[in-house]
Design a protein around this nucleic acid. Structure first.
Lengths: 243, 243
DNA sequence: CCAAAAGTGTTACTTGTACACCCATGT
DNA sequence: ACATGGGTGTACAAGTAACACTTTTGG
């Protein structure tokens, strides 16, 4: 291990600030829209560009705590899933690196989050209000955030296929159609036939019928199911695909 | 974004050194052993403990470059696969954080590597020679490196199932038995029947028969195959499982 | 000729896919 | 009654797993 003594010559150990950038998705199941949370930057670098909500990691703070803090500064939300995504750290990825005379690096540890759209409350108090954007219409973002977002979207699609993250974000009781719409919104229309999706999920045995029904306008009322954590836990290590 | 001005009070932006720690695997196909590269630490913290080969990121250096540098300081190897694993950064994970009067944090970006065992040459020149250890007999490691190693092993097993990383590390021409032994060594004896493994791999169509044969003692000579990058590329986006 | 290693084939079974069809409700 | 959304069934293709069998070599 190289001696960590600080000096500013070539090939010396670099000093870093560590930022956490969050790729925060939500699914508006009513309108079948996949949304991403963005903030508008009030100052340089990249003033007036949109960016992913982020913050610099503070003393005594873990990376994950910083990720949760960023989240809670922008939105109030109870139900969410969060995990680390990737760490971006090439020299030059942040223009602030060249503003200072000494070599200061900026590293970004990105986090991926999925939050419940319905009970999400965007916080306005600071001058950096966060807003939901349609993922399809994402503008040019600050820094390398478009790249991070692409990476996050890929993770979202992969996770949906073999991980029960959707249930962290759906209401306690949901219809199989709600679930199907959720998957459709993220993965696109053609990911699977509804009846096959339905059969597959039910066969896995971790969705239990609550006995309740809900009627949405005309048509037969739909059965409400809930996700059974315990039944799901029994299936761990088995290769699961919900497709 | 919080103002990055440095101060040493509570809730101020932390200063980081960024380390890169490599989980480097190799498979000794001759003797069916899965190996992990470790170095013995010559000084505190954790003097005389084994640890993953690591280094601190230098000025002007990308994370991946630092990972490659660590690798090349310990072993000479041509054929390898490398990717980022995970970033560990809770306060207190490195005992050096408390040795200095100001709040200095140490963050570890871990990388996962798979290298060809046969043409690997361990470098002895510094006092920190790296050595191959049987993964099964991994000792107590410095820092949180046992955790990082577990995480890396999981990634290795997952990657083998759907990613052609084995071919980065097998010789140009290999028998299907070589490939099977490789998989067996990493995943355990019972991951699949040989004849089914063979049939599945051949059906995928990216292994081409070189026409050459190799005889190993008694028994029918085995056909030598090679991995066809182009044929494999055509299969991308298709859900592939080699199991 | 026989053991050893490589390679092929068979069979029973489980999943996947694409549909067609039946059911319960509001208007 | 009929349109609408919910839910079930089926038939064929495809994939999986276990295992028996044939082929080609060395001794």
């Amino acid at each position: 291990m190289i001696d960590p003594t600080i000096n500013f010559g070539k090939n010396s150990v670099a000093d870093f600030k560590v930022g956490v950038d969050n790729v925060i998705f939500s699914v508006d199941t009513q309108r079948n829209r996949l949304l991403i949370l963005l903030v508008k930057r009030p100052h340089d670098p990249f003033a007036n560009y949109y960016s992913l909500p982020g913050t610099l990691v503070c003393t005594g703070e873990s990376l994950e705590t910083a990720a949760y803090r960023t989240l809670s500064e922008k939105i109030e939300v109870e139900n969410l899933y969060l995990e680390q995504l990737y760490t971006f750290g090439e020299p030059g990825r942040d223009p602030r690196e060249n503003e200072t005379s000494y070599e200061q690096r900026y590293l970004s540890v990105s986090y991926f989050a999925l939050v419940r759209y319905e009970d999400t409350n965007l916080i306005t108090k600071d001058n950096q209000k966060a807003v939901w954007h349609l993922l399809k219409e994402t503008p040019q973002l600050a820094f390398d955030h478009n790249r991070i977002l692409r990476y996050g979207y890929q993770r979202l699609r992969n996770k949906l296929e073999y991980s029960p993250i959707a249930f962290k974000v759906l209401p306690e009781a949901f219809t199989l159609n709600d679930l199907y719409q959720f998957y459709t919104t993220v993965l696109g229309e053609n990911f699977s036939d509804y009846s096959n999706f339905r059969a597959r999920l039910l066969k896995l045995g971790f969705l239990t019928d609550t006995g309740l029904k809900v009627s949405r306008g005309a048509g037969r009322p739909a059965a409400l199911y809930r996700f059974d954590e315990d039944a799901f836990a029994l299936l761990k290590d088995k290769p699961l695909v919900f497709i």
